[in-house]
């Protein structure tokens, strides 16, 4: 009898890119639901819109490049990019901005560099930064979490705001939007108000803004699930959070009225989403374990620096993109000691 010639290993392969991405999507569910709960249907609409935009852009480019479309779509990486992007943008962002951001992410940042595996930058964050620098007003108009909102819009109202820009009768933009807690903290600190005074407002919870900090908790839960499932390793999230925490604690001891405490930073803005879902994007991150620690620590430090002294309220996207650039170099200098090389445990 004749048999085919195939190289080892001869096993059923337990992993696949689709599975990996699916786990990430599943891990995003608790965070997404809480985002929708606190900030309304806009989040969901953005998620769907961005996913659609991502898949269509990916299909378009692959068609133009003459590559098979279906396998690339099926790996779900475009959807993951879209979801991360959608969770980062404000809930009422006009539809065309969402589409511009996500198609830039997929077409330019991912596909023009060669598609999955070849993009040096995190596409979701690159798309986010493009919008942030070109449309700063739209990109910083957030909604208040539901407990602070004067009026909660229903699905149709949100739909019409996103797609036509018309607000429900009797509402004003200024009345319904609100800056993010990070933004508020920053503006008020710039006015030389003391942190103890700032925090008197009802908009603060235990650590960060009310609502916001709970979203953080759910992201944390999803992230721990990813670590448990070995989709990501602990190195990047832990080093980001530890570095950010240490930076914050150090400066807080210098002056606790101008430098917010550590957990404020952890539970504000995109910190937890970044630590577990964005900075851990394997393609653009470091791959050696030691390198991941360096990479994460640098992101944590940069987040703190940009938030505290930089020009933008949140810094997650910038920090990640900057470190994406450094990742190959960090990897090169942090290679593990190969078995049987260097100083060994012998004797």
């Amino acid at each position: 009898m004749r048999f085919p010639s195939i190289t080892s290993p001869h096993t059923e392969l337990p992993n696949s890119v689709t599975k990996t991405m699916l786990w990430v999507i599943i891990a995003l569910i608790p965070g997404s639901i809480s985002m929708i709960w606190y900030f309304g249907w806009g989040i969901l609409i953005n998620m769907l819109l961005a996913s659609l935009g991502a898949v269509l852009s990916e299909a378009l480019v692959l068609k133009l490049r003459g590559r098979p479309v279906l396998p690339a779509i099926k790996d779900l990486s475009a959807v993951v990019t879209a979801l991360l992007f959608a969770l980062a943008i404000p809930p009422l962002l006009p539809w065309w901005l969402t589409l511009i951001g996500i198609s830039f992410a997929i077409i330019v940042v991912k596909q023009l560099y060669g598609g999955i595996g070849y993009n040096p930058f995190n596409p979701a964050m690159a798309g986010y930064v493009l919008l942030l620098v070109s449309y700063p007003v739209e990109m910083t108009s957030w909604l208040p979490p539901r407990m602070l909102a004067e009026q909660i819009m229903d699905f149709n109202q949100v739909l019409s705001v996103i797609f036509t820009g018309t607000l429900p009768a009797g509402l004003m933009w200024d009345a319904i939007t609100m800056a993010t807690p990070l933004d508020i903290m920053r503006t008020q600190l710039d006015l030389n108000i003391m942190i103890s005074e700032i925090r008197l407002s009802t908009l603060w919870g235990d650590f960060g803004g009310v609502g916001w900090e709970w979203v953080g908790n759910w992201y944390l839960l999803g992230g721990l699930f990813l670590i448990y499932k070995r989709v990501i390793s602990w190195h990047i999230p832990v080093s980001i959070l530890a570095a950010l925490l240490l930076m914050a604690m150090f400066f807080q001891t210098l002056d606790q009225e101008t430098y917010p405490f550590g957990l404020f930073h952890i539970f504000s803005g995109g910190t937890l989403l970044c630590a577990f879902f964005i900075a851990t994007d394997p393609v653009s991150a470091c791959t050696t374990r030691k390198g991941q620690l360096v990479y994460g620590a640098c992101i944590g430090i940069l987040i703190y620096i940009i938030r505290t002294w930089g020009g933008y309220p949140d810094a997650v996207a910038f920090a990640v993109l900057l470190l994406n650039m450094a990742a190959p170099t960090i990897d090169y200098y942090t290679q593990p000691r190969v078995f049987g090389h260097g100083t060994m445990k012998n004797d």
């Binding site: 195939i6 001869h10 096993t11 990996t20 790996d75 070995r230 050696t288 078995f339």
Partner: peptide, 27 residues
């Protein structure tokens, strides 16, 4: 079922799983 025919490979996503299991601690 035990050893399915190898499908097409897709690009490396740099996930580092390979390095995590390498007994020689290679990359």
């Amino acid at each position: 079922a035990e050893a399915p025919a190898p499908g097409p490979a897709s690009p490396c996503i740099r996930c580092g799983q390979c390095a995590a299991v390498c007994p020689a601690n290679l990359l």
